[in-house]
């Protein structure tokens, strides 16, 4: 086999995310094995796969919440965990990691909103504290984002006063506030009551339609995946089992394990 090729068909442009040879294990539990994955700028990749196959871990690696045991991650052509010195890759300083990480944002399954701040404060925090924006401007922008997710009336509510679906929409607005080029979504509707899922998917659809944000989404919502994904990636045991356009993977999977997985998910 030749050296790993970028898994997208794009030509020459620098991938928004480029992962090479990622290994991650906890003790004997090998979670990611020699994983390669590329995501093109503006591309929307949906990751599916059985529980425990490493979907969350790969997003967490891209967000620097989990340091890989081996391998490299590049965000828009810049190494995330390494710095190049004299042509050699050296472990990156915290400063370097921060600088590259500013291109990445993440939305969590359990929201992780700051409970002591109102919705608008949650959203304006990073623009003010990370980007040094004017507080009043940041607040205005936060209100606009809240309007985008349909929660302008809840600006001064704290997370404790919001429903799960509202919290998740605030969390999405919060991660958009610093305009990251790459957005990671880890099962953002899994913790929600079924009737609240639609509003959140609606917001994700808006972001997807905008087309300027690169999105990596882990989800079990297959209808949604078919609709917004450019590419569907099926994970199994910490590897990419198969991938392709969603219509093809969903209706004509090549691998038996993908068939089994889809049957289980769709039955439920």
């Amino acid at each position: 086999m030749s050296a790993p090729e970028p898994t997208t068909g794009d030509t020459g442009t620098t991938p928004a995310v480029r992962m090479r040879g990622i290994d991650k294990a906890w003790g004997d539990n090998v979670v990611l094995r020699d994983l390669d994955l590329d995501v093109a700028p503006g591309e929307r990749v949906v990751i599916i796969g059985p529980s425990g196959s490493g979907k969350t871990t790969i997003l967490r690696v891209a967000m620097t919440l989990e340091r890989p045991d081996d391998g490299t991650v590049e965000i828009n052509g810049r190494h995330l965990y390494h710095e190049e010195k004299n042509g050699k890759l050296k472990p990156a300083s915290e400063k370097h990691i921060r600088s590259v990480r500013s291109d990445v944002g993440m939305v969590f399954q359990h929201f992780n909103l700051f409970p002591h701040m109102s919705a608008v404060e949650n959203i304006a925090l990073a623009p003010v504290k990370v980007q040094g924006r004017d507080p009043e401007q940041a607040r205005q922008q936060a209100l606009e984002l809240l309007e985008m997710v349909g929660l302008e009336k809840h600006a001064n509510h704290t997370p404790g006063q919001l429903s799960g679906g509202q919290k998740q929409r605030v969390a999405i607005a919060r991660s958009l506030a610093t305009d990251p080029k790459v957005m990671l979504f880890d099962e953002v509707t899994s913790a929600l009551d079924p009737e609240l899922v639609g509003d959140v998917l609606e917001v994700l659809r808006d972001i997807a339609e905008d087309g300027k944000t690169t999105m990596m989404l882990v989800t079990h919502e297959m209808g949604f995946a078919r609709e917004v994904a450019d590419r569907l990636v099926m994970f199994d045991h910490g590897r990419v089992l198969e991938e392709g356009p969603p219509a093809q993977v969903l209706s004509d999977p090549k691998e038996q394990r993908t068939k089994d997985f889809l049957r289980a998910v769709l039955a439920h």
């Binding site: 993440m106 969590f108 992780n112």
Partner: peptide, 24 residues
Amino acid sequence: GQWEAATALNLGTLATWAQVVLPQ
């Protein structure tokens, strides 16, 4: 999750402590 959200928002050490951890 609060620390992780702070990391995902790229908050620095000082802001993480002052804005997220200590107030809670």
